[in-house]
């Protein structure tokens, strides 16, 4: 929902232009403090603000993920609270290298998560194999196993980068509810 402001007449209060409503109707609704959206949009708004990721820390990125969740960067303020069970998780942050031995377990964890679910590939190992791309035992990117929504580059990404990536995921959830295609 976007707030419309009349730049020609600054005296007129800002309002939200709702789809299928005239300008006057929208202004009246905004004045009364009423918001109108589809159920999908409201659900997406709620989901994006209570993302519960699964603690899936395989390697170094996991330490940065822990650091982001701890006191200094505090992921809780975005409603992001780590869960230990895939049954309770909305999204999975793949933090670290996925080896060929680990790949079936990643797939299984993904299958165990309830819909709707999202995947964040954190760091260059989960994105494309990273520094271990030439190793015999490493999967060249988590997207070879499960679909990935957001890729975060870095080895490992700094906590601000992880927060930015998670904010992008929240944005994606909200935009998709509006029927927009997000790549």
């Amino acid at each position: 929902m976007e707030v419309t402001k009349n730049t020609a007449n600054p005296q007129e209060p800002a309002y939200v232009q709702f789809e299928g409503f005239s300008k006057e109707e929208s202004q009246e609704l905004s004045k009364a403090g009423v918001l109108i959206g589809t159920l999908e949009q409201v659900k997406a708004w709620a989901r994006s603000n209570s993302l519960w990721p699964l603690t899936f820390a395989t390697a170094c990125c996991g330490i940065e993920m822990m650091g982001t969740g701890a006191a200094h960067y505090d992921l809780d303020r975005f409603g992001i609270i780590f869960r230990a069970s895939p049954r309770q998780a909305d999204c999975i942050i793949i933090a670290g290298t996925i080896t060929k031995k680990m790949a079936p377990i990643l797939k299984r964890l993904y299958d165990q998560m309830p819909e709707p679910k999202w995947v964040v590939a954190m760091g260059s190992c989960a994105t494309a194999g990273g520094p271990y791309v030439r190793a015999y035992s490493v999967v060249k990117g988590a997207d070879q196993i499960i679909p990935v929504d957001v890729y975060i580059p870095g080895c490992p990404p700094s906590p601000p980068a992880l927060i930015y990536g998670l904010n992008k995921l929240q944005e994606k959830i909200r935009l998709e509810a509006k029927g927009k295609k997000v790549r």
């Binding site: 395989t58 290298t97 080896t99 031995k101 271990y132 030439r134 190793a135 015999y136 035992s137």
Partner: peptide
Amino acid sequence: VGYLHRGTEKLAED
């Protein structure tokens, strides 16, 4: 063990 075996020692040879 072995879920994070990344072959560091083998990579180091090259």
